[in-house]
Amino acid sequence: MMNEMNFKMPASLNELALNLDNADEKTYLISGGTDLIIKLREKKIYSGTIIDLKGIQELNYIRQIEQTICIGANTTFTEMIHSEILIKNAPCLVQAAEQIGSTQIRNAATIGGNIANAFAGADAIPALIAMGVKVKMMNAKGEFFLKDIDEVVIGSGKNSLHKDEVITEVIAPVLGHGYKSFFGKVGSRERVTIAKLNMAVVVKNNHETGVIEDARVVLGSLGPKAFRSDLVEIELVGKYITDSLQTEFEKALITQIDISIAGRSSRPYKREAVKALSEDAFSNLFGSPAWRCNNEK
């Protein structure tokens, strides 16, 4: 009776495709394990099939191919933190990875698992959305297809994958000249904390004109899933980086929070805490700005 759980250990994508062929509601994919093992216990899951993706070496890589960065689904957050490619091209993703869980969790948890788990407060997801990544998936037939991250993550622990589909890769564009990115979060303590609020920002600043040409602002922990905030982005695009822009940015963020969690008891706190993220984002992206000079710090 205790042996009702099957365990598959595909060593390649081909084998994985075969394993997925019979996948059903009781098929569970495991990579780092940091989410699934808790789920097995909490949901009292004693039978079914666990497919372990960790043995698929070909899913563990970070590579740059011309203007795209490909991250294998098995890549851990620790590996992402140390990736020169990501440090150079996707600082927000590195910043998010650094703030996920503890050292042990980052050593185990993977990018593929984090997306599939689709937790509302997940730290990597806002950064991935801001980066505009595509998620590559494979089905039981061994066919590959791409979807926007936004389509893959439904939120509140749900993803849009069918039972016979698996995330194999995350594809991020190299953002190019003038782009910068930031990730920040507010939790209930300094380290090892679930985000009460998190935010990723990607901006393109034209160094010659000083104007922001592109802005993506993603907020997490404000609903079932992280989302891009149009009303905040509009405040940034086409603007010069000034003290007053920071103020407008902050105001827009507060407005977004008022809309997103109207009536929630967490609103008064989050509309204040978002100012911290706003300030951190600005100083991180645009250097120590003038508006700080008024303080006696």
Partner: peptide, 29 residues
């Protein structure tokens, strides 16, 4: 049992891991 306390930490392939957060069969090899 949820990867928060680290009392179960072991080293796997040179990295600190919560042994309560990995299935035994995942440690093969």
């Amino acid at each position: 049992g949820e990867g928060e306390c680290g009392a179960c930490t072991i080293i796997m392939d040179g990295l600190a891991i919560n042994s309560c957060m990995v299935l035994a069969h995942q440690a093969r090899g």
